[in-house]
Amino acid sequence: MMLEVRHVDAGYGATTILNDVSLTVDEGEVVTIVGANGAGKTTTLRTISSLIKPTSGSVLFDGEDISRKGADEIVEMGITMIPEGRQLFPDMTVRENLMMGAFKKSARAHQADTLEEVLDLFPRVHERLDQNANSLSGGEQQMVAIARGLMARPRLLMFDEPSLGLAPIIVTQVFEVIDKIVATGATVLIVEQNVFHTLKAADRGYVLENGAIVMADKADALLDNEHVRKAYLGI
């Protein structure tokens, strides 16, 4: 098991958001977490990234407990999160942004090769390499954010709401890119409002409600599930 979240409680300050959350991601799997807003999906990803520390329970990566490590060490070990809302470095060029993506020691050495591979996947990003990130459109910024995540050569890639706040046409493009990444055999954990599309792309899924996992199943089974259809797909 590559990633194992065991009985995690976590939150911000005095507010507990996650309540005994357990989930696993195996090498090469695509896993999604489905849930209402405020259910704790982003908190789960932030806990795995060690941006917040669990108040109890543990997060294991390759069997090692990583829940007390710093966020930078988590990245170094091979977990990269592509954050909600793009979060580029606005006054750096696209190229510099991508270089920052390969900041961790193990990725720095292969920086040039990785850049070539990544740019193959994002021809639009290639055209904009020497522009400042803040001069790009929202859709382009999202592409750069994904490309920057790939620059770290992560073993586990986590997406947090990649389609949030994007026009429907851009959402389609973002999902095309995610499908391409999935097709390379990458291990992916994805959180997304667009439940229909994500469940189609995923192998397995978890349903998170009020900070607790209430359902875990194969993705197609969840797509057929009465509760999921009613609560999250609006069917």
Binding site: V75, E76, P83, Q87, L88, F89, P90, M100, F103, K104
Partner: peptide, 15 residues
Amino acid sequence: RAVAQNRAAARLMGI
């Protein structure tokens, strides 16, 4: 510079 421009993202880069 990255930290100055976007602290949250810098952290996700492993800084």
